Computed example of a mutant assay.
Amino acid sequence: MAADKLTLSVRPRGKPVKKLPEEVSLPAKGTTSELYAQLAKQADISIHRLRVTKGSDGALIPNSKDLPVEDTGIREQSTIYVKDLGPQIAWRTVFLVEYAGPLLIHPLLYAILPYTSHSPGPSYLQTLSLILVCIHFAKRELETLFIHRFSAATMPAFNIFKNSAHYWLLSGLNMAYWIYLPSSSAAQESNPAITYAGLALFIIGELGNLNTHLILRGLRSSGGAERGIPQGLGFDWVTCPNYMFEAMAWIGIAMVSWSLSTVVFAAVAIGQMGVWAKKREGRYRKDFGGKYKKKRYGMLPLIW
C-alpha cells in the first residue's frame, strides 16, 4: 500500500539557514510548490529566497504548481539541499525602476542643455529625439505593468543597481547629454530623407515589438511558469522577433538623433539581445524537441 506522506531529509547549501527543519513531510502526490511552501513556512523565510536541489545529482527542483515531487525522481527519505538566495526584489519592480531612468533624465536635460551658451533652444531633431525616447520607455513601463508575465517572480535585490546602470547611465545620462547639447549633431538642420526613414523604422519596430509581447503573453497564464511555442509575425524568421523589432526601433532613433551616443547604446543593447536570443533558441530546442521548428537566426534574419 502506498504511503500517504513523503518525508525528505533537508540539508542547507552554503551558509546555514536559520530555523531550517531537518526533515519535511508533504502528501505523497504533492507538488514542488507545496514543498517550497512547507520549507518557507518552517524556516520562516520568503519562498522567493529559496533554491532547492536534489541531493543525488544537484539538479534544481523548480517551484511549480504542476510538477509532482515524485516526478523529479525524489523518493521517501531522499535528501534535498536548500540555499538562501538572499534578499530578493520583484522582476516587475526592477523593470519599472530601470525604465524610469531615461524617462526622468531625458526631459530634464532637454529642459536645460539646449538653452546653454546662448542657444535659441532645442532644435526639431532634439525635440523629435526626446519624443521617440520617451515613447519607447513609456511603452516599456506600460508593458511591464499590463502585458509581461514573468516566469521567475524575483531576482537578487543587489542586481537592481547593475541592471539600472545600463539604462540610467548609458541610455539616460550619456545619450541625453550628447543629444541635447547646443553643439550636437541633432541641433543642426535635419536631412528629411534620413529623419523620416528613421521615424518609419521606429514606428514599425515599436508596433512589431508590442505585437510580439502580446503573443508571448498569450503563452502563459497569470502567475504561471508554463512555456509554449510562439507563432505569429516574425517567429518564422527568427527566434526572438521582439528583439529584432526593438533593434529596428533603436536604429530608427539613432537615425533621428544623429548621435554617436545613441549608436553606442543601440550596439550594446543589440549585442546583449543577440546573446539572449541564442540562449532562448537553445531552451526551445531542449524543452520542445521535434515539436519546435529550429531557427537558424536568433534576432536578425540572415545576420545573427
Score class of each variant (00 low, 15 high):
L260I: 15
A266Y: 09
Q272H: 14
A254Y: 01
V263Q: 01
Y243V: 10
V268N: 08
M273T: 00
A269Q: 14
F245Y: 14
S257N: 06
V264L: 15
G282A: 00
A277N: 07
W276A: 03
F245V: 11
V256L: 04
K279E: 13
M244H: 12
V275D: 08
E246F: 11
V256D: 02
M244A: 14
A277V: 03
I253L: 08
I251W: 03
G282P: 01
V275G: 06
V268P: 01
W258V: 14
E246R: 04
G271N: 10
M273L: 12
V256S: 02
A247F: 14
M248E: 06
S257C: 08
G282R: 04
K279W: 10
K278F: 14
S261D: 08
M248Y: 07
V263G: 03
V268S: 10
M248V: 00
M255Y: 04
V263T: 04
K279M: 14
E281G: 06
A277F: 05
V275Y: 12
M244F: 15
W250L: 11
Y243F: 14
E246M: 11
T262M: 14
S259H: 08
A269V: 11
V263K: 02
I270Q: 08
V268T: 13
K279R: 15
G274H: 02
A267R: 04
L260E: 06
S261W: 06
E246W: 09
S261M: 10
